[in-house]
Design a protein around this nucleic acid. Structure first.
Length: 341
DNA sequence: AATCCGGGGTT
DNA sequence: AACCCAGGATT
């Protein structure tokens, strides 16, 4: 047992945040929390986690849930394939493991949506097994503590960081070690302005000693975003029902969007919708909006429109009951004087 | 190895 | 505006 993990865990037990998934070791709940926490801050996850396990308290409930329901529970969290993969994996565990969540790495790593980090997190946190779980927080702590100066996103670096982590990971309390490393990265060893004066392991930290906190970890720069321009409609038919379209492409798959056409001008957009059987006979310009994704920016000129009745798209009375993409949910909210919620 | 996949928060 | 977040799948 290392001095490092002793100091780290002692600090963790005093200063850890009270998070809902820390009141359970049920592997189903730990799994739900870990998937939600992928690329998502803990404070954002809390209300989503509570609502999700209240609505779907068992793995079997998730396996049998409708896709519109699970996407509605995920609405606004992003990376929607996470929850579609969870349903698929819940069905797989029900059929192949009799509904018992697997507890071996070679089984977990085969499950859709579970990678090296999440497998390690479930094994260490739910099953108290000695497995590394290297996320962004842990990478940053390790890179600083050991003075690791290579790009941490390289595959070779990930292996080296896993080895370094194993030199610190103790046998007896892997569940506390894993969460403590993450907690340290999330609350003290942050990207900007790390609180080294409060850190339980600052004495031997290379970054602290050499004043490299703002240099480490080294990471490649992100690619520039491309921009796409759309004509977007809040569209009502002659029964005053709104029209929406379910996404079938990968981006936002399974969610609903307002009808929109990638175009610079209104006339082309109206023609394009006409080709899909949507006959627009009135339009009125509203505002323009921007929505930023990870690798993409949508700029949208929004119009209110009226169209003849058609069976081409999905008709709804209001937008509250379907999983809407945030890019359009925010437009609906800002333009609510057009009768929608 | 590079790219895709969301949305919110911080600096 | 740039970067990050309890990352994983696909190509």
């Amino acid at each position: 047992m290392s001095h490092f993990s002793n100091s780290l865990i002692a600090w963790y037990e005093i200063h850890k945040r009270d998070l809902p998934w820390r009141h359970t070791e049920n592997p189903y709940y730990i799994w739900v929390s870990e998937i939600m926490l992928q690329q998502t801050q803990a404070q954002t996850v809390i209300p989503y986690y509570n609502r999700f396990i209240e609505t779907l308290p068992t793995l079997k409930d998730l396996a049998f849930a409708e896709e519109d329901l699970i996407l509605k529970l995920w609405e606004g969290l992003g990376y929607y394939s996470r929850v579609r993969n969870m349903k698929k994996t819940a069905q797989y565990i029900l059929e192949n493991y009799n509904g018992i969540f697997p507890n071996r790495y070679e089984d977990l790593i085969k499950l859709t949506g579970i990678g090296e980090y999440t497998a390690g997190a479930i094994l260490s946190i739910a099953y108290h097994q000695k497995w590394s779980a290297i996320d962004g927080n842990v990478s940053r702590v390790l890179a600083r503590y050991f003075g690791f100066k290579k790009d941490i996103t390289l595959n070779t670096s990930k292996k080296m960081l896993t080895d370094l982590n194993h030199t610190l990971l103790e046998d007896e309390r892997p569940h506390l070690y894993t969460q403590a490393m993450i907690e340290l990265g999330a609350t003290l060893c942050t990207k900007h302005n790390p609180k080294c004066d409060l850190c339980p392991v600052s004495a031997m930290c290379v970054a602290k000693k050499e004043n490299l906190q703002s240099v480490l970890p080294v990471k490649a720069k992100a690619k520039a975003k491309t921009e796409k321009h759309f004509i977007t409609f809040i569209l009502q038919d002659e029964n005053n029902q709104y029209l929406v379209q379910k996404v079938e492409d990968n981006l936002l798959k399974g969610l609903y969007l307002l009808p929109q056409v990638e175009s610079d001008g209104l006339s082309y957009a109206i023609e394009s919708l006409m080709d899909q059987g949507i006959e627009i006979y009135y339009t009125e310009p509203l505002k323009s909006y921007k929505h930023v994704f990870t690798h993409l920016v949508w700029s949208m000129d929004v119009y209110f429109g009226k169209c003849k009745n058609s069976d081409s798209l999905t008709k709804i009375d209001h937008f509250n009951h379907i999983p809407m993409a945030t890019a359009h949910k925010q437009i609906i909210h800002k333009e609510k004087h057009y009768g929608n919620d």
